[in-house]
């Protein structure tokens, strides 16, 4: 028999589905919220999905850095591709590189891959879940600062995702300095 869906452990998904429902109707009324919650629960029971298993710890400064840098990157990416689309002459030299990520969480891998596809110069061609490896198509090797530059860029995105969402243990496991030290260093830079 299929594993029973425990609804109370799935409340974030139901809240998200209810929020989508309310947004689609466009106004926040009690009836809409209740209908959204009921429909959300119904969807979870009728169409059960495997658990992603998020046990991270969201960290607000990390999330702010991630989101702001992401939007800057999206704009830069569009400008870059637009320039290349309209430019005359040679096509840029491309490459497919392997990037071994430091975290082992499925969710962090997914988010990193999604963000990589939207920022300048990279698209994920293949993701290998067990070894935590992404295969990234680099649009223009010279623009990205060579193969190593492109690899460093993908790892930098992963670093931001880790600081935004991972637990302290995962940060330590990935070989990154703990968050507290990150803050202290930044405040030292400001005061200096």
């Amino acid at each position: 028999m299929a594993e029973r869906v425990r609804l109370w452990t799935r409340w974030p998904m139901i809240v998200w589905l209810a929020a989508t429902w309310v947004l689609l109707w466009g106004d926040l009324t009690l009836a809409n919220v209740l209908a959204g919650l009921v429909l959300g629960a119904l969807v979870m029971v009728l169409l059960p999905m495997p658990r992603v298993g998020f046990d991270g710890r969201p960290w607000l400064p990390g999330i702010v850095v991630l989101v702001v840098r992401f939007f800057v990157d999206v704009i830069m990416a569009s400008v870059q591709v637009a320039k290349k689309a309209l430019a005359f002459g040679q096509h840029p030299r491309a490459a497919v590189i392997r990037v071994r990520l430091r975290s082992h969480s499925d969710l962090l891998l997914t988010i990193t891959a999604q963000l990589c596809s939207l920022v300048p110069g990279s698209i994920i061609v293949e993701a290998h879940r067990l070894s935590g490896t992404l295969y990234v198509h680099v649009f223009d090797v010279d623009d990205a600062g060579g193969i190593d530059g492109a690899r460093a860029h993908a790892l930098e995105i992963e670093r931001r995702v880790i600081y935004a969402l991972a637990t302290d243990e995962e940060i330590a496991e990935a070989g990154l300095p703990p968050r507290r030290r990150l803050l202290r260093r930044r405040s030292q830079e400001v005061s200096a």
Partner: peptide, 24 residues
């Protein structure tokens, strides 16, 4: 520009760049 890129870029993967970034 995304449409022009899809037309002009030489291969599938480069076209995907045009389809994701300026388009979004």
């Amino acid at each position: 520009v995304a449409a022009i890129g899809i037309l002009r870029f030489p291969d599938l993967l480069a076209r995907m760049h045009a389809g994701t970034k300026p388009q979004v």
